[in-house]
């Protein structure tokens, strides 16, 4: 507030002009809208409270059972793991997509095209049944048996053999499906982020002698993050919700499955559906908090805010007594 009229410290200066006290414009439309919304909200709350179908006590009693809590944990862990793998895969695909080598960028394009076209629930169902394709999945030299046959030996070069029915079941299958699919979406987000960075940045880095890898890791990607993080937040929230598709694998330890199971066992469908809604609201809010801190972390050098190091330096100078 400005100093009140007639205060004494204005003796040297001319008195400041009088503050404007105008009559504000009235907005009758806003009052009407507020009234309508208030009535609708009251009706909604009234329905929640009076309709016996909601069974609030039952819902509260059943939405925190050990099985449900485990389900929430599985859902959260699955979301985070699938996103971490998806982001890493997305970065690799985005860098490949921007490669000058047409074979490399073409492969990335094909991957993205394929996995974006497949609905996640279809992909999950397919992966869950890959155990039927081969009984075991081996890691080794490609075409080893054919090569050995050719030279007349009876042997193979395999280092690791995995049982198909085990790896393509449950949690791993779900994680694989969600991460593979997410990689395709993240690739496009990361590519947009990389392309949003001024090409002068990569140029300055190479002029300093930084390798292409270091230029990408240390100069381009950190700046691309500002563009990458907000849509990645959306992707994470979408991923949280898509864990409910794990029923196609099936992964039965996941949150929605557990809540629905209680609902169908007790015939209290609505209360448990509401419980589901509340759980997803809570988990999404949790993720939004994480996103807030990530965005802050990667906005360094964007605002003109004083940073921690600068504040410390300024204080240190202040103690020295120079200013």
């Amino acid at each position: 507030m400005a100093s009140p009229p007639g205060s004494t410290d204005t003796a040297t200066r001319p008195a400041p002009p009088e503050q404007i006290k105008a009559v504000p414009v009235r907005h009758p439309g806003r009052w009407v809208a507020t009234a309508i919304i208030a009535v609708l909200a009251a009706m909604f709350v009234h329905m929640l409270v009076t309709n016996p179908v909601f069974q609030w006590d039952f819902m509260l009693d059943n939405m925190f059972t050990p099985a449900v809590l485990r389900g929430a944990r599985t859902t959260l862990i699955m979301t985070i793991l699938a996103m971490v793998l998806g982001v890493l895969l997305g970065i690799v695909l985005a860098v490949m997509r921007l490669s000058p080598n047409p074979i490399v960028s073409g492969s990335a394009w094909t991957y993205i095209w394929f996995f974006r076209a497949i609905p996640r629930i279809v992909l999950l169902f397919f992966i869950a049944n890959l155990g039927a394709l081969y009984a075991s999945y081996d890691l080794g030299i490609p075409f080893d048996q054919q090569l050995m046959d050719f030279f007349g030996f009876e042997a193979d070069w395999r280092f690791l053999s995995l049982n198909g029915n085990q790896i393509f079941a449950g949690f791993t299958a779900g994680l694989l499906g969600l991460a593979l699919s997410e990689g395709a979406y993240m690739a496009e987000i990361v590519r947009a982020g990389i392309q949003s960075v001024d090409p002068g940045q990569a140029e300055a880095a190479s002029a300093l002698g930084l390798s292409r890898g270091k230029t990408m890791r240390r100069i381009v990607l950190p700046q691309a993050m500002r563009v990458i993080i907000p849509p990645t937040g959306n992707e994470t929230i979408a991923m949280l919700k898509d864990t409910s598709l794990l029923i196609a694998v099936p992964v039965t330890t996941e949150l929605n499955f557990q809540l629905r199971a209680i609902g169908s066992r007790t015939f209290q469908i609505i209360p448990m559906a509401v419980a589901s809604i509340l759980w997803y609201l809570a988990l999404t809010s949790l993720l939004m908090i994480g996103q807030y801190f990530l965005e802050k972390r990667f906005s360094r050098g964007v605002g003109t805010r004083e940073t921690r190091a600068q504040r410390a330096a300024r204080r240190a100078r202040g103690v020295g007594g120079s200013t």
Partner: peptide
């Protein structure tokens, strides 16, 4: 070889 650009091209995320 050091190079100085018209538009500076400093890395904005670094001090």
């Amino acid at each position: 070889i050091g190079m100085v650009f018209q538009r500076f091209n400093l890395f904005p995320h670094m001090t």
